[in-house]
Amino acid sequence: MDLFIHTPGNEHPEIINIEPTALVRELLTDDISGGQVWLTEVDQEIDLALTLEAAGIRPHHHVHRGVCHKVEVVVRFNGDHEHTFGPATTIKSVEKWAFGPKVADLSREQAAKHVLAVPGSDHFLEDSVHVGSLVKPGSCKVVLDLLPRSRFEG
């Protein structure tokens, strides 16, 4: 079956083909020693000794692999705002917190005109990106800027 697999250092998933009877630990690569695997938007890691099918992983599911069990997210918007998320949490979910009353307190109309971005990057983050994909080696912390979406004029 085909799976979408998310990995630190790459915002977008790779597609891999693997047997449903393979073990979850086979999703880990050699450079992720001590790593774990999560289903997208699920904080609890999956037992590595289970088979994919026993773990409830189905074709075209999105899974995350990495070493950070939690990711400390700092959003910069009128000061620093911190919250901890599971690594397989999507940017769409991080935005719900960042745009909400505990951080920016944006109306629905205002929220639609804002985005998150990694400081110094050349793009805005897409909804489907896993926050655990943004960590750097040796760190489980991610800093994000909350920015207005561009309106093209000229």
Partner: peptide
């Protein structure tokens, strides 16, 4: 498209690649 990710949009606005760098096309 009237956008900095479109060749025609960039051609018509020489400043867009820098002004809207988060949305502008580049070879990556």
């Amino acid at each position: 498209m009237y956008a900095p990710w479109d060749r025609m949009g960039l051609k018509a606005h020489s400043d867009w690649a820098q002004k809207y760098s988060h949305d502008a096309w580049n070879p990556t």
